[in-house]
Simulated scan of single mutants.
Amino acid sequence: MKATAIRNIKSLVPLLDRVLVQRIKAEAKTASGIYLPESSVKELNEARVLAVGPGALDKDGKRVPMGVQAGDRVLIPQYGGTSIKVGEEEYHIFRDSEILAKINE
């Protein structure tokens, strides 16, 4: 069986109550302009929502609305979800219920 390589993340559409996110990279430079070594920069639990599924179905067959939408900034769990690598970029898929919070700007 041949593995399918995803060439463009825009071609990936989440199903049901799943949310496609990309972690926001931490700043490698302090406010005063000092560059930090890569080993001291922690991975943030903050991500940008790229795409959402249509929502899960409840027991009556009605769609449950999603809690987030494309473009939202959210807090995600440190572990879990499914990682997807496209080129050098890494993306994650979580269930809507796994998203911890939405960040209002």
Rank of each mutant, 00 (worst) to 15 (best):
T82Y: 15
T82N: 14
G67H: 09
D96G: 02
K59A: 08
I9L: 03
R18W: 08
E89K: 14
S97R: 13
E43S: 09
G81P: 03
D17S: 02
K2Q: 05
L50R: 13
G87W: 09
T82M: 15
N45R: 12
L100F: 11
G33I: 06
P54N: 05
P77D: 14
K42L: 13
R7A: 06
L20I: 05
I93P: 05
K102S: 08
A70G: 01
E38N: 11
E38K: 10
L20F: 05
N104A: 14
A101H: 08
G67L: 03
L15C: 10
I76L: 12
I34W: 06
P65I: 13
E43P: 04
K85N: 04
L12S: 00
G87N: 05
A3C: 01
G67R: 06
N45W: 03
A70E: 06
P77N: 12
I93H: 05
P14H: 01
S97E: 10
E27H: 09
A28I: 00
L12H: 00
G71V: 08
D60F: 14
N104Q: 15
G81Y: 07
R48G: 01
E89A: 13
Y91V: 02
P14L: 07
R23P: 01
G55V: 12
H92P: 03
P54E: 03
E38S: 12
N45L: 06
R95H: 13
A51K: 12
S97V: 13
T30R: 08
V52M: 05
E46A: 11
A28V: 01
S40P: 00
K10G: 02
E43C: 03
S39N: 11
E27L: 12
A70I: 00
K25P: 03
A101P: 00
Q69T: 11
A101F: 06
P54Q: 09
N8R: 12
L75G: 02
G67C: 03
A51H: 09
A101K: 15
A101R: 14
V21E: 01
L50H: 10
A56T: 14
V13P: 02
D60A: 08
G81F: 07
F94G: 14
E98Y: 11
E46F: 15
I9S: 00
L15I: 13
I93T: 06
V41I: 15
P54W: 01
S39T: 14
K2H: 09
D60L: 13
A26F: 09
G71L: 12
I6F: 14
A51C: 07
A3R: 03
Y91M: 02
Y79K: 15
I24Y: 11
D72M: 09
E27T: 15
A70L: 02
A56W: 10
L100Q: 08
R63A: 04
N8F: 14
I93D: 10
G67S: 05
L36N: 01
D72P: 00
I93Q: 05
L20H: 01
K59W: 14
P65D: 11
V49D: 00
V49R: 07
P77S: 11
K42D: 10
V41H: 11
A3D: 04
P37T: 08
I76A: 07
K29T: 12
